[in-house]
Amino acid sequence: MTRSELIELLAKRNSHLAYRDIEMAVKYMIEHMSEALATGDRIEVRGFGSFSLHYRPPRVGRNPKTGDSVNLVSKFVPHFKPGKELRDRVNNAVDKRSANSTYSGEHSN
């Protein structure tokens, strides 16, 4: 599903609202979440998951073309931890599908 497909779905579910408002709402939400992370704030959505920043220490990297070493400064990267509901729903969908295939998880000890 892409961003525009998501907007389509939300527009269908909210036919009393202007399409433009849905588009803007999605834009605002994504911007607001990005801004929050950029200032070091976390995002916590129950049932969905949380976003936070992880620190990456400085390291010596290499230019893959020339082999020269490059000093890379420390940085932060976004990290997502799926919430319990999302984890369970994604995984249960798989369990249901493979329920027919035989699975031997027995250990003999």
């Binding site: 990005s34 801004e35 992370l37 950029a38 200032t39 070091g40 998951g49 976003f51 920043l53 620190y55 400064v73 420390s74 940085k75 932060f76 990267v77 976004p78 990290h79 997502f80 799926p82 999302l86 984890r87 994604v90 995984n91």
Partner: peptide
Amino acid sequence: VVTFKPGQKLKIKVEHHA
């Protein structure tokens, strides 16, 4: 399992925070 791969735009925004 679900994994999140941040886009270039977000990565740059956040990196700058550091």
